[in-house]
Nucleic acid binder design. Sequence first.
DNA 1: GTTGAAACCATCTGAGC
DNA 2: GCTCAGATGGTTTCAAC
Lengths: 149, 149
Amino acid sequence: MTALEPLDQAIVRELAGDGRCSFTDLAERVGLSVSAVHQRVRRLEQRGVIRGYTARLDTEAIGLPLTAFVSLTPIDPAAPDDYPQRLAHISSIESCYSVAGDESYILLVRVPSPAGLEELLRQVREAAKVSTRTTVVLSTPYEGRAPAL
Amino acid sequence: MTALEPLDQAIVRELAGDGRCSFTDLAERVGLSVSAVHQRVRRLEQRGVIRGYTARLDTEAIGLPLTAFVSLTPIDPAAPDDYPQRLAHISSIESCYSVAGDESYILLVRVPSPAGLEELLRQVREAAKVSTRTTVVLSTPYEGRAPAL
DNA sequence: GTTGAAACCATCTGAGC
DNA sequence: GCTCAGATGGTTTCAAC
């Protein structure tokens, strides 16, 4: 995987900071013509460097005030490792990481309440035969900051 | 915090899926006029329900192929709890969560290499007087999926 | 790979309901 | 709070370099 050119870096940095930034603004900020920027952004999208765009939401305002990390340990270590797939339909799971260490996976989940968390854990244990360890998030000083390029 | 109206829910769901969706498209998808959608989106932004927009990037393509969770435990339990602030300048830290459990904080970090991780841990220990426990991410089956509304 | 211009389309505002 | 319509300004394409 070849490293990103400085101009593409600049574009990507701007779009990480403001995903709805117009091409006109973008062009000014990176010092290129509008068409050139337009072409480069399209190319970055097609190459998969930019995987998409999303609105960053206030989890409380949308009714999911409880965030938690759920670590997964397979009950049967010999079972086929298709946990992510088995859990994909559970929409409270925002992210799924395969990790090195004591556990096999770490999930980031968002639920409306402690009752929602209980329900989620039930679903997870049912869908994948795993034991779970849950770490409740008390507050989020910051999240999803733009990467350093 | 009053719950989200169904129309606002629909708008927010669409923008979580495609943050660069035009107001024209958005209007069609939620069944409203363009101006009405426009007005509602602006209101959602001002109320802080929508906190911004970002490009979702391929971490490998931008030169940060190594992701890890770093758990923090204060060395002096009586020290003032200003860790997030003390760590905020470290740009490899994407997210910082205050958590219940054995540790006080969990950081999500992105670095170019194992050497970068080592350097990051040094920086973290220096900036905050904490001991760290690191869980390396091997792969990411999914991440940042749109929330269930 | 960049530019500039032209055609098209989206954004945004304000008046009216 | 929604709609319509008009003015502004952004997006997208294309020919040329």
